[in-house]
């Protein structure tokens, strides 16, 4: 059933796949993100309580959702890498982690900037904020573990285990607002009931989420290519490719 996937475990095939996908992800991300952001920031109506301050939702919610989505993607890659011992999957973990860390940081930062005028405080140690901060530390831990080993194979294994263990945090982040009393409000769109946001504000938000997801994908692909080149630099296929490019340039 999964036979068609196997060739992509080879670094050169994975590299070629990234090259094919990258322009599609990049261009669609740019278009959708631009549409969503302009629609959300300039044309969507202001909120009845928060006025224009609510517009941080178009940056905060997509980055928060994707900080968790990216983590799942990284954990799946780590799982595949550990169980099937596929080097390309380990490289994907290393490629994804910094992107996810930046998304988490954006979510925390925009939340704090919104919290000051709305709640009256930058930070409060409630369950949602704390678990999201732990997610940032998990990302940083994965990056640090990977970097701290001279032997990248060992570094991949250690960081992969850490990435997998951290998956426990994802449901905690999501359900923190239901399980405990928090200052952070409950889920607006990531629930099974009807979203509690007016449709005139919802559509640009969905576009922003999709756009940022594509942008995240594009950045991960780009980083994976770099990682592939870095770790395979002594392999014949990299040399052959470089030689070919050199000849094309001349």
């Amino acid at each position: 059933m999964w036979k068609w996937l196997h060739p992509y475990a080879k670094p050169e095939r994975a590299f070629a796949l990234c090259t094919t996908l990258l322009p599609w992800f990049g261009v669609s991300a740019l278009l959708i993100l631009a549409t969503g952001t302009i629609w959300g920031l300039a044309f969507a109506p202001a909120d009845y309580q928060q006025g224009d301050s609510f517009r941080i939702i178009y940056l905060h919610v997509p980055s928060a959702i994707l900080s968790m989505g990216t983590y799942s993607a990284m954990a799946i890659a780590a799982f595949i890498g550990l169980v099937w011992q596929i080097r390309t999957a380990h490289m994907a973990v290393a490629a994804i982690a910094p992107v996810g860390a930046v998304l988490t940081f954006i979510a925390l930062f925009t939340g704090a900037a919104w919290g000051k005028p709305m709640w009256g405080t930058w930070w409060v140690w409630d369950a949602r904020l704390t678990s999201e901060l732990i997610l940032l530390f998990l990302y940083l831990g994965v990056i640090a573990l990977y970097q701290s080993f001279e032997d990248k194979e060992q570094g991949s294994k250690a960081s992969g285990v850490m990435a997998l263990v951290g998956v426990v945090n994802l449901p905690i982040i999501h359900y923190s607002v239901e399980w405990w009393n928090t200052l952070h409000q409950g889920a607006t769109i990531t629930k099974f009931a009807k979203p509690s946001i007016d449709s005139s504000m919802l559509w640009p938000l969905l576009l922003c989420i999709l756009g940022l997801a594509l942008l995240t994908g594009a950045m991960c692909l780009y980083r994976l290519q770099n990682e592939l080149l870095r770790r395979e630099s002594h392999r014949p296929w990299v040399r052959a490719m470089l030689l070919e490019e050199e000849q094309n340039a001349v």
Binding site: D47, Y48, Q50, I57, M118, A187, T188, D198
Partner: peptide, 24 residues
């Protein structure tokens, strides 16, 4: 210290007025 807790509902002022009778 007093902090405001916001709910998860977002809507334009006209909708809020029609639905809940809340004037902005």
């Amino acid at each position: 210290e007093v902090l405001a807790k916001h709910d998860e509902e977002y809507m334009p002022p006209e909708v809020a007025e029609a639905m809940k009778g809340i004037k902005h």
